[in-house]
């Protein structure tokens, strides 16, 4: 009984108590404090009243064109997906894409130095950038899910990018 919580101790307990999701021990701690503290009792009553006030927010209906617009966007999804689907797993998809990007990059190095025309170099640079962007989007679009796996695998590959020998090994491994 001597361990009655302080008001600041209510900060991470009161809400769950009021919405009925507090664990029994937390419930008891809050009840004990409320019995002894008029300020927090008032706050608790106000929060309940506030929640009922907040019920009065009107609900917007999506516009009638919503579904149709979405279907149009989905129908326009790029054929790129076919490429991803063709690969058995997103991880392998990354590996292959990373290899393609790297081989484009590596093979372009000496030729650029050798005075290749600028247009060609620009196109290739653009292609590399687009693929990198697609990779980034893939990572970003996979919140919660296989993020960890994909990212860790991807990191491993980017480390390899410094050593062409390692790259060849991975490439051979994937081919089997």
């Amino acid at each position: 009984m001597s361990s009655t919580q302080t008001c600041s101790g209510m900060e991470n307990k009161l809400i769950a108590y009021l919405d009925g999701r507090a664990k029994p021990a937390e419930r008891r701690a809050v009840e004990e404090h409320l019995a002894a503290c008029a300020d927090c009792r008032l706050r608790a009553e106000d929060f309940r009243a506030l929640w009922s006030v907040m019920e009065d927010l009107p609900v917007l209906s999506p516009s009638p064109a919503f579904d149709a617009a979405l279907r149009t966007k989905i129908a326009k999804e790029p054929a790129l997906r076919g490429f991803w689907q063709w690969l058995p797993s997103p991880r392998l998809a990354f590996a292959v894409t990373a290899l393609v990007v790297m081989s484009v990059w590596l093979s372009s190095m000496p030729r650029i130095a050798g005075g290749r025309n600028k247009m060609e170099a620009r196109i290739e640079a653009k292609a590399t950038q687009v693929t990198a962007e697609a990779d980034y989007r893939m990572i970003r679009d996979l919140p919660v899910l296989e993020n960890y796996d994909v990212l860790s695998k991807f990191d491993a590959l980017s480390e390899l990018s410094d050593s062409p020998v390692g790259v060849t090994k991975v490439g051979a491994g994937q081919a089997q």
């Binding site: 919503f66 966007k73 989905i74 999804e77 991803w84 689907q85 997103p90 996979l142 899910l145 296989e146």
Partner: peptide
């Protein structure tokens, strides 16, 4: 909201109910 649905759709192949 459309972008959310589009991203859900795009990520469906990688979807895992974790």
């Amino acid at each position: 909201a459309q972008e959310v649905f589009l991203r859900v759709y795009r990520a469906r192949k990688e979807y895992a109910p974790s």
